[in-house]
Amino acid sequence: MAKRLIPTLNRVLVEKIVPPSKTTAGILLPEKSSKLNSAKVVAVGPGDIDKSGNKIPVSVKEGDTVLLPEYGGTQVKLGDKEYHLFRDDDILGTLHD
C-alpha cells in the first residue's frame, strides 16, 4: 500500500525538479548551468488560522511549479520517492512559462 502525506496547516509538500545533466544530443551540461531550485507542488494543507479565527488559505495549489529557498524545508521519504515540506510563506514564488 502506498502512503500519501497530507500536509497540515499552511505546509506544502513538493517534489524537487532535477534539471537534466545532459542535452538530448548527449552533451554533458555543467552542474551550475541555469540551475533553479524549483519543485512541483504535490499536496497542500488546508491553511492557517489567524488570531481572529479566520482561515488563511495556502497561496499555491497542487500542480504548481514553485521557486524554493536554497536552504530549508523538511525532507520526507515516501516509498522510493523523496519529497520536501515547506511552509507556505517560505516559498519564494510560482514559475510560469
Rank of each mutant, 00 (worst) to 15 (best):
Y71L: 10
E70D: 11
Y71A: 13
D48A: 15
H84F: 15
G47C: 08
V14R: 00
K3C: 04
V66M: 04
K16Q: 09
P46K: 04
V18H: 12
K77Q: 15
V42Y: 01
V44P: 00
G47H: 03
F86Q: 00
V76H: 00
E62I: 11
E70T: 13
A39M: 03
I17D: 03
D50F: 15
L67I: 15
D80F: 12
L92H: 05
I56F: 06
M1N: 13
T23I: 12
K35R: 15
H84V: 03
K77G: 03
P20N: 09
S52N: 15
G93C: 12
D50C: 12
I6S: 04
H84D: 03
D88Y: 06
E82M: 07
L78A: 05
N54P: 06
H84G: 00
H84T: 03
S38L: 11
K3H: 13
L13P: 01
P30Q: 10
G53L: 14
K61I: 11
T94K: 15
A2T: 09
K16M: 08
L28W: 03
V18F: 09
L68E: 02
P19Y: 06
V42W: 01
V60Y: 12
S59A: 14
D50S: 10
I6E: 03
I17G: 02
P7T: 02
K81Y: 10
D64L: 05
Y83S: 01
G73K: 01
D64I: 05
D97A: 14
F86P: 00
D88L: 05
K32S: 12
K35V: 14
P57R: 06
R87G: 07
A25I: 08
S38T: 15
G63T: 13
A43C: 03
P69Y: 06
A43W: 00
P69D: 03
D80C: 06
A43F: 00
K77L: 08
I49E: 07
K40H: 08
V44N: 00
P69A: 06
R11G: 00
S34Y: 13
N10V: 01
V58R: 00
L67F: 10
Q75Y: 04
K32H: 10
V76A: 00
P30D: 11
G53R: 07
P7I: 02
V18D: 14
G73P: 01
T24W: 11
V12F: 05
K55I: 15
P20M: 04
I17Y: 03
L68M: 07
L36C: 11
G47A: 05
K40L: 14
E31F: 11
N54T: 13
K61C: 08
S38P: 00
V18K: 14
E62N: 06
T23C: 12
A2Q: 13
T8K: 14
V66S: 02
I91H: 02
V18Y: 08
D90R: 05
L13F: 03
T23A: 09
I91L: 13
F86C: 01
D64S: 07
K61D: 10
D80A: 11
L67P: 02
S33V: 15
P19N: 07
S34L: 15
